[in-house]
Structure formats: structure tokens, C-alpha cells
Amino acid sequence: MKKVLLILSLAFGLSACGGSGSGYKSMAPATMAKVKVEAPVLSYATALKVAKSEQKKAKKVGMEWNTIRKLMKSAKKKAKAGNEKAAIKLLVTAAEHGRLGQQQAKDQVNAGPNF
């Protein structure tokens, strides 16, 4: 009896996730974050402007991630130390976190318990 239940639960589990490998791709494609891929940033000033803009938008929708300020602070230190390339990389990451915060706010508008 235990073997039958085990086989049935395994078969049901595989059919629920589409039966493909880990099932990650078939779980919820509509809820996966769709992030815009932009052209590479050419200067520190431009990267800072974009990061601040995305931070402002995320704050406006109420989902400003706490990593954004930390990344911007680290980028400022790197830029003052003369490592502009690393600073730009940190600012691009900060901008990405801003976009992801905005996406999270959109995804969780109607979040709540499902009874």
C-alpha cells in the first residue's frame, strides 16, 4: 500500500510541474520578473543618474530595497578611490535592484492570504 501511495504521489508531483527536470520553467512564467536589459552605461555620472532614478521610482511605489543605498555608497567610495569601472558596476546593480523593487510592487499588489 505504501508503494502504491509513493508511486501515485510521485506521478502526481511530476505531472504538476510538467515532468521536465526541476520544473522551474513550468512553475509560474507569468510571475517571473521581467527586467529590461539596457545598453551599457558609459560614465559614472550617467550610471549614478540612472541608479538614482530607479531608486526614486522604487521608493514611490513603496518597494525600495535596502541594498540600493548600500550599493550607491560603495560605488561612491570606489569612484573616489579611482576605480570607476567597479563603481559603475555597483551602480548598475543598484539600478537593477530598483527595477526589481518596482516589479515586486507590481507583483504583490493583491498579495494576501488565500482562503
Rank of each mutant, 00 (worst) to 15 (best):
E84I: 15
I68L: 07
L8N: 03
M72P: 01
N114D: 07
L14Q: 07
A33R: 08
Q103M: 12
K85T: 13
V61S: 03
G62P: 03
E54V: 00
S26Q: 14
F115K: 03
L10C: 10
G62S: 02
V37H: 06
I7Q: 06
S26R: 10
K49F: 01
Y24L: 15
T93F: 01
A33K: 10
A86F: 03
T46Y: 08
R99S: 05
L6K: 14
M63L: 03
Q103H: 13
E96R: 14
K60W: 05
G19R: 10
Q103W: 15
G23R: 08
K2W: 04
A16N: 05
R69T: 12
F12R: 00
H97S: 09
A87F: 06
K89Q: 09
S53Y: 10
K36V: 07
E84R: 14
Q108R: 09
L48W: 05
I7K: 04
Q108A: 04
N83W: 06
K34R: 13
G101R: 03
K2P: 03
K25H: 09
K36T: 10
L100A: 05
L5F: 09
V92L: 04
K60P: 06
R99W: 02
G19P: 12
G101T: 05
A105G: 13
A45L: 07
K52S: 07
Y44P: 05
W65N: 07
A87R: 06
W65A: 09
D107P: 02
G98T: 08
F115M: 00
D107S: 13
A86Y: 01
K73Q: 14
A28E: 07
S20M: 00
I88Q: 04
M72D: 00
V50H: 06
T67M: 04
E38I: 00
E84V: 15
A28D: 15
A51S: 11
V109E: 09
K73R: 14
K80S: 14
L42C: 06
L90C: 02
I7R: 03
L14C: 11
I88L: 05
M27Q: 14
L90W: 00
L91F: 02
K34D: 11
A105E: 11
L71A: 08
N110C: 03
M1W: 10
P29R: 13
Q102V: 06
K73N: 14
G23E: 07
Q55C: 02
K25N: 11
E96A: 12
Q104P: 01
